[in-house]
Computed example of a mutant assay.
Amino acid sequence: MPSFLEAPVAGAYHVLTSLVDILQPLTGAYAAVIAIVLCTLVVRLCLVPLSVRAQRGLKARAALMPQLKQLSEKHRGDPERLQREVAKLQAESGTSLFAGFLPMLAQLPFFWLMYTLFSRTVVAGEPNQLISGSLLGAPLGVHWPVATGTPAFLVVAVLLAVVAWFSARLQVRQLETSATTGAPVSTWSRRIAQLLPFGTLLTAAFVPLAAGLYLLTTTTWTVVERTILQR
């Protein structure tokens, strides 16, 4: 790993281990699990302004769909002119076609930190204390095993599937809302909206259990947050 990336990893490690030490007398063996959940909630709380901005951007984009459709039909033979006109329309409305991706992109560094912290046996020049934590008997630093005697991975997978199902419903509802403004929803778009949230299950199969917990916590937050913001 490049040396300039060691500093944030070491900093995150000391923050998380300090939190585990504080929680240990109250939560015992689940101190690391609770610490991961709490840190994830703090991260998402800090990203609320971005989420609000993203939701406003998505609503503004939905309102622009009829105009975007007209521009596409008018300049279908001139891609460069179409690009300029779309950029002009976005600038005048103060929105962006990529507004909805802001919260997800902002979370990537935190997910990377969680993955790194629970994938290494040595962090900041000392043995990694975090990987000794466990959930239902499964060490937080292990990846999804082919066979396991603990229900931890199954529990996380089922909960991720439930959250993904609710997330898919929200995304389809958002597509249908866009359709009411004049932009028809294609079968392909609907299928992507229904399947994409279940990508968290595939991701969880290739990351440590701790990163799976992060995914579960942050996707649950996202579903609750979107439900509130879409009202």
Score class of each variant (00 low, 15 high):
M1A: 12
P2S: 07
F4I: 06
P8H: 08
V9A: 07
A10N: 11
G11H: 06
Y13N: 01
S18K: 11
D21I: 10
L23C: 04
Q24N: 13
T27A: 15
G28L: 07
G28N: 08
A29G: 11
I34F: 01
A35P: 01
C39D: 07
V43T: 07
C46Y: 06
L47Y: 04
V48P: 05
L50N: 09
A54K: 05
M65Q: 15
M65I: 05
P66Q: 01
Q67I: 02
Q67H: 10
L68D: 02
S72Y: 00
S72N: 12
G77F: 04
D78F: 00
Q83W: 11
R84F: 09
E85N: 09
K88Q: 13
E92Q: 13
S96L: 00
L97G: 15
L97W: 08
G100H: 01
L102V: 11
L102D: 03
L102Y: 11
L102P: 00
L102G: 11
P103M: 09
P103N: 05
M104T: 14
Q107S: 07
Q107T: 02
L108E: 03
W112M: 14
T116S: 09
L117F: 03
Q129N: 10
Q129R: 15
Q129K: 15
I131Y: 05
S132E: 14
P139Q: 00
W144I: 12
V146Q: 14
A147R: 14
G149S: 13
T150M: 08
A152C: 06
A152V: 04
F153P: 02
A157T: 12
V163S: 02
W165F: 15
R173C: 06
Q174Y: 07
T177W: 03
T181I: 05
T187C: 08
I192G: 04
A193W: 13
Q194H: 09
L196A: 14
G199Q: 02
T200P: 01
L202V: 14
P208Q: 10
G212Y: 01
T218I: 04
T219A: 05
T220Y: 08
W221V: 10
V224E: 10
R226D: 14
R226G: 09
